[in-house]
Amino acid sequence: MRKMVKQNSKLFIVASAAIVLVVIVWVVLGSHRNITQPISYNHKIHIEEAELTCVDCHLYVETMPTATIPNIEICQDCHSDEPMSDSPEEVKLLKYIEEGEKIPWQRIYAVPNHVYFSHRRHVTIGEIACSNCHGNVEELTEPPSYPLWLPTMENCISCHKEHKVTYDCLACHR
């Protein structure tokens, strides 16, 4: 009898472990909704070889609440008729520019509508580096397919606590 109970307990442990595993896998996979961008943009090349900085293309990061995702107006300042490289991605870009069509970038970082998040507050006033939240984008040879840091309330608050800045609800909620 005891043996049976023991066997059952083993079964129970295995079953619960399996359930936990499934949940973990589900959470891990579910949270990273992989997004593919229309152009596989290479941040590393632009920063190291073209010697650009984040702000050169992502305008208003330092002066406005919302930063921008650059589109053809900015790209065509450098990329004109002649391709600069033999990358197939640049060909795609040139086609967009030629046709005057916007690149349908997919946004991967977003805060909900009821949250006031200001880039100026964090970058200019708080002097926080972009990589703090966006990760080491400078080293990426292709666009990130999921947010490296999730803008959840827990994450925001833990960072605010760490830096000893306000975590009053009304500082962000609206």
Binding site: S118, R121, T124, I125, C172, R174
Partner: peptide, 17 residues
């Protein structure tokens, strides 16, 4: 009524900047 607290968020940021 929130005393338009969303306006305070912007005003505060302007002042801090």
């Amino acid at each position: 009524c929130s005393f338009c607290a969303h306006r305070l968020q912007v005003v505060k940021e302007d002042a801090d900047a």
